[in-house]
Design a protein around this nucleic acid. Sequence first.
DNA 1: ACAAAAGTGTTAGTGCTACACCCATGT
DNA 2: ACATGGGTGTAGCACTAACACTTTTGT
Lengths: 240, 240
Amino acid sequence: MVDTTNNINSGLKSIEERFFKSAISVDCVIFGFDGKDLKVLLIRSYSDEFKGQWSLVGDLLTPDEDMDSAAYRILRQRTGLDDIYLEQVHAFGRVERHPLGRVVTVAYYSLININDYNAETEVAYENSATWHNVKKVGKLAFDHNEILTASLEHLKANLASRPVGINLLPEKFTLTELQSLYDAILDRPKPLDKRNFRKKILSMGILKDLNELQKDVAHRPAKLYSFDREDYDALLKSAF
Amino acid sequence: MVDTTNNINSGLKSIEERFFKSAISVDCVIFGFDGKDLKVLLIRSYSDEFKGQWSLVGDLLTPDEDMDSAAYRILRQRTGLDDIYLEQVHAFGRVERHPLGRVVTVAYYSLININDYNAETEVAYENSATWHNVKKVGKLAFDHNEILTASLEHLKANLASRPVGINLLPEKFTLTELQSLYDAILDRPKPLDKRNFRKKILSMGILKDLNELQKDVAHRPAKLYSFDREDYDALLKSAF
DNA sequence: ACAAAAGTGTTAGTGCTACACCCATGT
DNA sequence: ACATGGGTGTAGCACTAACACTTTTGT
């Protein structure tokens, strides 16, 4: 029947010649929130085939670095972003997904405060990354639309179990801002119910009431909150 | 500052020479259930370094096949298993995880009826796969313990949202058998409450009461159930 | 008769949904 | 005074968790 040794021992070519011919890349899907829309960080593709098209922040792995480390290295080199948590989403391995040859890519995603990557940071890098509304990205290079979609799904799924706002919002924020973030990520026909949202999020015990108010707004000023790091970390641990 | 073109254009060696030197492999984590314990299908490692150690069902990708297809191909070649649903779990990419060189592996998992792979199937394959209690696997080849652990976590997480029993149990089964499966996967200090489990699982509307009873058991015989494929598929769709 | 597993209901608590009005501020 | 968004409570319903005894069969 089937010869299980086929791939390993037989054939004319060496294992090197037959199997060690592929490249691995990493693509980082970096989400940010501007108070209204969910955004993703994109760079101009350097590939000839996709010249001028936008693409995710990615690059090839060198054979001597761990894949997880490479993700941080690539993100840092292309955007200057450092010290942010990346989480693996999925590996994509269609044969023809990359014009240069066989490249399997592994997608990572992260959530950052949108002000941590801005116009000032930008100028230091050749292929400046810019923020794009996730609902309005056009056709991206490679299979990056597919990767973005998968990452968005991943983010939505995580939203229920993890208080994601800690990474996406500024230090101080109002409950309405937090809710806008949830609404932007969930992207549902109707926004969440204001009262229910507040009840639930406050009952989690990870928000700290700062006893401060907004200033200079043309309406009743809202109370400001921040995340309580300790309680937040405690919750994360207990949930897993 | 940082030269973002570093990896792509500069250097003495060609892109081929520098980056297209890696291999990609697939490892399949196949779970089965024998009515009492959760089991995983393992083969004897063919690698020199791990001679005699058990390993997951895996192999290298040839550069001309899609990764998802390769997972099915490898599973079929090594075990004869066909027509089963594989789901990607995670990619593992530590530099030194494989003795032959740089090999990034992508783990897939699946759930099968344990009788679909048995002693009879087994003899056709050189490196016969055998079932091992997941709680009693020893040290596996490569980083396969890590992969197994991650796949188990994945399975636990999926249990709540997907009625996984459909793949792991025989055609006809009792509610107690179904609960044993849940208890085996969740592996919690206390088993689930019998009454609550029955209420919940029946209320999902995916079980069909066959109006049959167990035979030849030394106690009150239990009613037999089967999954209702249609209702099950409908539930899957609506849940996602 | 005994052993072994099957089968069955109720209660209390918790969380989710839906819903409408008054409040504080700037213009 | 008006416009703007901030802030609050309750009732119905669904789901969850905890808990103990009777039934049916084989030996």
